[in-house]
Design a protein around this nucleic acid. Sequence first.
DNA 1: CACCTGTTTGACAACGTTGTCCGCCCCTCC
DNA 2: GGAGGGGCGGACAACGTTGTCAAACAGGTG
Lengths: 324, 324
Amino acid sequence: MKDVASAAGVALKTVSRVVNGEPGVHPQTAERVRAAIDLLGYSRNESARVLRSGRTATIGLVIEDVADPFYAGLSRAVEDVVIEHGCLLLSGSSGEEPGRERELVETFCARRVDGLIVVPAGDDHSYLRPELDAGTAVVFADRPPEPGIDVDTVLADNAGGARRAVRHLLEHGHRRIAFLGDDPAIFTAAERLRGYREELGDRFDPRLVSMRSPSAAGVRAELDRLFGLDDPPTALFTGNGRYTVTTLRALGRQRVALVGFDDFELADLLDPGVTVVAQDPARMGQVAAELLFHRVTGDAGPSQHVELPVQLIVRGSGELPAKA
Amino acid sequence: MKDVASAAGVALKTVSRVVNGEPGVHPQTAERVRAAIDLLGYSRNESARVLRSGRTATIGLVIEDVADPFYAGLSRAVEDVVIEHGCLLLSGSSGEEPGRERELVETFCARRVDGLIVVPAGDDHSYLRPELDAGTAVVFADRPPEPGIDVDTVLADNAGGARRAVRHLLEHGHRRIAFLGDDPAIFTAAERLRGYREELGDRFDPRLVSMRSPSAAGVRAELDRLFGLDDPPTALFTGNGRYTVTTLRALGRQRVALVGFDDFELADLLDPGVTVVAQDPARMGQVAAELLFHRVTGDAGPSQHVELPVQLIVRGSGELPAKA
DNA sequence: CACCTGTTTGACAACGTTGTCCGCCCCTCC
DNA sequence: GGAGGGGCGGACAACGTTGTCAAACAGGTG
C-alpha cells in the first residue's frame, strides 16, 4: 500500500480510502490510485486489516468428518451462508475425538474467528467458557453442549424420529425389533435409543439392543447374536446411516425388515428400497449458520434451541411383513 | 499480552518468549508468566503474529462442491495433511463456476494463505500469475490449469481408465457402447471421451455419445434417444459418479450392461453390482497436499505432474452379455 | 479582499506480535 | 576485589492497515 501511495503520488490514507470505497476522494485522484494498484498488482493484506479492525470475517466449523455425507451436506450449507455474509470458512474434522475437537476450537479462537459452529465430539466444553466470555459467538449443531454451557443449538428430532421408525415397524406387524446404533455416550445415539425404547414400551427387550462399533465385523457379530436368540428379531432399526449401510452389507441376500435413521443416496435403488427416517443436513447447516450470524451481528437475546423435524420415507424395506 | 506482562511483572517480550518456548527465560519467571496467562485466559492473537512473521499457516482449498463424495474424500485427506503440518484449511466450493473459483482464490490470497490447492472450474488462470510471482505455492488437482501456467498437478489417468472400461465391455461382446458424460469443456470429461474414442477405434459412432446435463430429465431423454436408434447401444459407459447414479435411476428395472467412472458407496449392494473404474480421491488429496508442502517449505524445482492410476472393479453390471 | 464553509488530502497513532539490540546482574576466574 | 562473560530481561521498531484529527485548498459570500 505504501508503494501504491508513492507510485500514485498520494498519501497512504488516500489509498486506504480508495480501496475501501470511502467517500471524500476526488474521482481523478481515485483513478490515479486505481491505476497504480493495477500496475503493482496490489492486494490488501487482510491480516493487517483484521489486526486493526478486530473482525476477521472468518467462521470456524468443527464437524466429525467431512468425508461423511451427512457432514459434507451440512458443511456445504454452512459454507453457502458464510460466503453470502462475505466471510470465509475454516473447517476441521474432529474424528469423534474430544481432544481434537478442543484443539480445533482453540486454534480457531486463537485466529479470532467471529463465530464457531461446533458438532461436539466430547461432552466437556468448559474450555469454551473463556471464549464465550470474550464474546465469540458459538452455535452447536447436531448435538448439544454440556449442560452448563448456554448457547444456541440446532438439533434434529432424534427421539421422535426413532419413535416414528419403530411405530412404522410395529404397524407392519413386527414385535421383535432390534436396535443397532452407536455408543449411547453420543447424544444422537442415546436420543434415538430413548425414542426406540419409549415407543416399544413393555415390548422393550435389552437383549435386542446392540451398541457396538459400526465396523463390518462388529455388525456381523451382532447380527449373528441377535438372530441366534431364542426369540430373534423380525425387524431391525439402524441408528444412523453408517449402521444402515454396514448392516445391509452384512445381511447380503438375507431379507429382513429394516428402517434406518438418516437417508442416503441410492437407498431408493436397492431392492427393496430402504425405508428411512431422513434428516436434512443442509437445513441443519443453514439454520446453524443463520443463528450464528444473528449473534455475530450483535443479537444478545436468550439462547435459541431449534429442533428440526425428521421425515419417514417409505421405500419397501420397512414394509416387509413379520413372518408368522 | 500486555496485561499478562504487567500481571506477571515482566516485560512484554518475556511473555512472548514464554509463549513461544524460546530459551533464555528463568524457569521461575516462566512459571509466573504461565500462571498469569492461565489467570487471564490469554490466547495469542494469530493475526498479529501473521502480520509480523508473514506466514499464515493457512492453506486454501478450492473444490467444486464439498457435498460431492469425491471432493469430500479429497477434502478430508487434504485436511489431514494440513493439520499434520500445523496449519489450518480454508475451503470453498466453486460450484463449477469460473467466476466463483477466481473470487475464492483471490480472497484466499488476500488473506495471504501459504499455499493453494485448486480444482479449477474455468480454464482462464491468468489471474493466478501475480500470486505465483508473489511466491504463493499452488497445486492443481483433478484438472490441470490453462497451458501457460506452470504448477504442480495431480491428475487421475482419465483416458486410461476410460479405455479400460470400454475394453472390459468389448471383452464381454459389446460392440455398440454409448458414452454419457459431462460437457467436454471439463477436462476430465474430455479425457474420458478421448479414451473411450481411442479404445473403440473404428467402432466409434458419434451418435452414441451424449454429453448433456446430468439432470434426471436430461439423462432420461438421452437414454430414450439412444435406445431409439436403429442400431441402439447394448452397453453404457457413464463418465462420472453422478451420471452413473442418475443413469441407474433412469434405467429402473431395465437391465443394461454398464460400467461407470468413479466408485460410489453401495455400488456393491445394487443388483447387479455396478462395475466401475475407481479413482482414489483421498490419495489425490493427500498427494496434492504433500506436493504443496514441498513447495511451501521452499522446494523451487521444476513443476511436478503426478498421474494417479485408476482401478477396474468388477461387480456384475459390466459383465452382462450383449444380447444377440 | 477577508471570511466562512465544505471538500479533499495527509500526518500520526494504534492494533498485538516478534526481531534486534542493549543493559543488567550474578558468577567465575584471575 | 576487579574484570570478563554468560544468562536473563527489557526498550524499541516494525509488520500493513485504519481511525482521528487537522491542514490545505477551492469556492462562495459579505
